[in-house]
Write a protein that binds this DNA or RNA. Structure first.
Lengths: 236, 236
DNA sequence: CCAAAAGTGTTACAAATACACCCATGG
DNA sequence: CCATGGGTGTATTTGTAACACTTTTGG
């Protein structure tokens, strides 16, 4: 192992920031925290932190998310690195941005306490520090883009969910409405859903069957997920 | 402007590495250079460099590319940031990876001299330093992914090109064969191509009409680019 | 005139959309 | 018994894929 360093090069702090998405059955939401550091202490921001000496960015993102939510093995994806020299007013900091998808209900309790964290609708959230607003916008676009061809939105739902709930999630993510008949048939045609015996009767008198993701066929049928979103053109 | 710094945080050198794609009419190629720095001086690597104090990563990538090729306003896109703590044997370095698309013929001369740069087929290139091999693989996938729904491969072709040439480019990028009739009709149906009056007769006796990208209708018709690649499932 | 590549036409099939209709049940 | 949301059926239209066919022209 060499001990020499690259001479005459600048070095910067490198951070990870996480856009955490959740879905409460009504609205797509993001999780924000009140910033603990100066500058701008107390302002709303994304959950983030610096990359430590012996961890990768992925590991840092996992650590930060576990710290905030108490959750491990969360879906997360690096999507862009923000590098404008003056993006952080304190000191030049490179930020590697991630988005995460979590089941909001399952973990609602464990979250809110620690960091003064709070869920906000993606359509109405407070002003954020630095370029975090830009990060959120980009994360939302990436989520739309990715979900046209990958079965990732299930990560936002409980283990058992109904097709009408799934549809309302898609409608909220894509800010549009789908025909229920066509939506249902497309989803079922992927072979990804396993029908359960029980129904959810909270939403209607007839009740809607619960489904689970079929993890056995998950990998084999993932490619069928293409074209699930009508007119994906608009989101790409 | 605050002069205070984040205390007790590690700082790392931050680099940009570029995967430069070109197409010579036969094969999709990448541009590699012989590394000028220790360690591993003289080994094949991607073109890269450190991010300077007053530039963003985008600016650094443009600068590095202009330096290597003499070209400005090249298509480039940040696609992933590589962060494994030991990826660089000299010193921990974060690398923000970009891919670029250039018209190989137009600039072939100005390139090769400066940095001992050389084009290699994407199917057969030498072993690369650090994690650069991984970067190339990921860039290739991203190119395939993106080009299923965005008209970016034109960046690899001269201003005037024939549909058979365009087809062979697509076939090379996706490592498959397309029906020429269907391919031609799909491309023309986008409204993105302007037929020219002259033909390219180098490839056949009949000759193939040249086309140009219709930059007026480019933005309006971009969305039509979806589904141009048969079975895009395989590449997503 | 013929080989070889460019380009067009045709047909069978698969898919997406729109929308009408039936189902189940709590109140 | 009826309003309400869940779920199914189906006709129309559109898109896709395969492949046969015509065109052009240098040698």
């Amino acid at each position: 192992m060499a001990s020499a360093k690259y001479s005459n090069q600048s070095r910067y702090t490198v951070a990870v920031d996480c856009i955490v998405f959740g879905y409460d059955g009504q609205n797509l939401k993001i999780l924000l925290v009140k910033r603990a550091l100066t500058p701008l202490k107390g302002k709303w921001s994304l959950m983030g932190g610096f990359i430590a000496k012996n961890e990768s960015a992925d590991e840092a993102a996992s650590r930060i998310l576990a710290d905030l939510t108490g959750l491990k093995d969360i879906y997360q994806e690096q999507f862009y690195t923000f590098t404008k020299p003056d993006r952080d007013t304190q000191e030049r900091t490179i930020s590697i941005a991630y988005f995460s998808l979590i089941d909001i209900k399952k973990y609602k309790e464990s979250i809110s306490t620690a960091y003064q964290a709070q869920w906000f609708s993606i359509k109405d959230y407070p002003e954020l520090i630095f370029d975090h607003g830009e990060m959120v916008k980009m994360a939302q676009k990436r989520l739309q883009y990715k979900a046209t061809s990958h079965a990732i939105l299930f990560e936002l739902l409980p283990d058992k969910f109904t097709i009408p709930l799934l549809q309302s999630l898609f409608e909220d993510v894509y800010e549009t409405n789908f025909d229920k008949g066509n939506f249902s048939r497309k989803m079922l045609s992927t072979g990804l859903l396993q029908k359960q015996k029980d129904k959810d009767k909270t939403g209607s008198k007839k009740g809607a069957y619960f489904y689970k993701l079929d993890k056995k066929n998950y990998q084999q049928n993932l490619h069928k997920f293409l074209k699930l979103v009508p007119n994906p053109n608009n989101f790409i």
